[in-house]
Amino acid sequence: MSSFTLYQPRDSGLHRLHPLTKLTLTLCGVATAVVLPGFWPNYLLFALFLLPLAAWGQIVCPLLRAVWPIWWPFVLSLFLVQGLFWPGGTPIVTLGPLSFKQEGVLFATAMAGRILVLIGSFLLLSLATRPDALMNALTARGLSHKLAYIILAAIQIVPRFQAKAETITAAQQSRGLETQGNLLRRARALLPLLGPLILSSLMDVEERAIALEARGFGRRTLRTSLILLSEQPWEKGVRALLLLATAVLILARTVLALR
């Protein structure tokens, strides 16, 4: 059965980190990627920060395999949209009536680097952290158990729905519904597919709510947890340091921009 999570179990130092430490790494990576200026820094950040972390977690290949299909459409769009259509700009390569502009290509390269880090940071988290462990860490820090339920249930229900959508599509196609052809014909196929999917799933909601209540979900007592999260004594320090460094970076960037 397909799974909605990318989690790759490994016996590694990265995997053993407390989920909050990994979440902090990701969030700091995202913030840094957005504020880092210029052409190279984000590529360096990816090569010298994210890749070594992935190597530590024995997930370099899965990371690259996961990053690539999301990254390349961005790269393609950036180079076509910003490279070819940069208003004004100095032409460097001319293809018939169009030409790549130097400013556009530089911008596209810089942005592609940023997006690489943005995507990579989140994928590193998803590859090395079980979502339930992450939610467990967050509820232990005060996140509502109801929000945690919503997130975890969504993660588990989505693949079931994708399967359901495929079944319904196959069933309707076998009854002669056309999902090919011109735009109008394809648009007309939408409601017969969508209706059964949404109706059948909404009708289940009532029973699912009863099942949840029958397990004491509505109780206001203090909750306990079966999952036990371990934390190295130095992890708190690392998190504080990461947050501090990111804050300094953002501050420096703001000051520079204001000048």
């Binding site: 975890l152 249930a153 588990q156 229900i157 004491g216 007592t221 079966l226 999952i227």
Partner: peptide, 21 residues
């Protein structure tokens, strides 16, 4: 009847006890 809140059979069984503290 599966809550969807837990990722393994063991944790699913324990879910009610977690809620009871």
């Amino acid at each position: 009847q599966i809550t969807g809140a837990r990722f393994s059979v063991r944790e699913e069984v324990a879910f009610g006890l977690e809620n009871m503290g």
